[in-house]
Amino acid sequence: MAAQHSQGIQTLLEAEKEAAKLVQQARQYRAQRVKDARTEASKEIEEYKRAKDEEFKAFEASHAGVTQQAKEAVDKETEEKLKAIDEEYASHKEAVVKKLLDRVVLVKPELHRNLRKAGLE
């Protein structure tokens, strides 16, 4: 009976070792599948990124002319406005300087209106 009991224990130990091997293989298989999935996902991400970059470059190229034209139009309008401001400045400069000098140089001494009302004239 002891031999049978010993043989039964030996069979159980072998079965346990076999089960441990199967579990280890399953873990390795799972780890490999996860690694493969990550690699595949990384490739898909790179492919998607490349496609979107190309799409953006195409969009940018198709709208580059519009942007350049708008910039040129704004620059032209700005130059025209600056030219008009310079012309206004040049045409009114003398009159403004004369008015300023007249106000500063030609002073008529007179009482302030509040003092006149108080009767201090």
Rank of each mutant, 00 (worst) to 15 (best):
M1K: 01
M1P: 14
M1C: 07
A2E: 13
A2M: 09
Q4D: 14
H5A: 15
H5L: 13
Q7D: 09
G8E: 14
G8W: 04
I9A: 08
L12G: 03
L13D: 12
A15N: 15
K17F: 14
E18R: 02
A19E: 15
A19D: 15
A20G: 10
L22T: 10
L22D: 15
V23C: 08
V23H: 10
Q24M: 04
Q25L: 07
R27Y: 03
R27D: 13
Q28E: 14
R30E: 12
R30A: 02
R30M: 04
K35C: 00
K35T: 07
T39W: 14
A41T: 06
A41E: 10
A41W: 05
A41I: 03
I45P: 00
E46F: 13
Y48A: 09
E54N: 12
E55T: 06
F56G: 01
K57D: 05
K57F: 03
A58K: 10
A64V: 03
A64Y: 07
A64Q: 12
G65Y: 07
V66L: 06
V66D: 01
V66G: 05
Q68Y: 08
Q68E: 11
A73K: 02
V74F: 14
V74Q: 04
V74C: 03
E77D: 00
E79R: 02
E80M: 11
K81L: 15
A84L: 08
D86A: 15
D86T: 12
D86P: 00
D86I: 14
E87D: 04
E88W: 10
E88F: 00
Y89T: 07
A90F: 11
S91M: 04
H92K: 13
H92M: 12
H92L: 11
K93M: 05
V97H: 10
K98P: 03
K99C: 02
L100T: 05
L100D: 06
D102L: 02
D102Y: 13
R103A: 00
V104C: 06
L106S: 10
V107Q: 14
K108E: 00
P109F: 07
H112W: 10
R113E: 14
N114F: 15
N114H: 09
R116G: 08
R116V: 14
K117V: 11
A118L: 10
A118W: 12
A118R: 14
E121F: 10
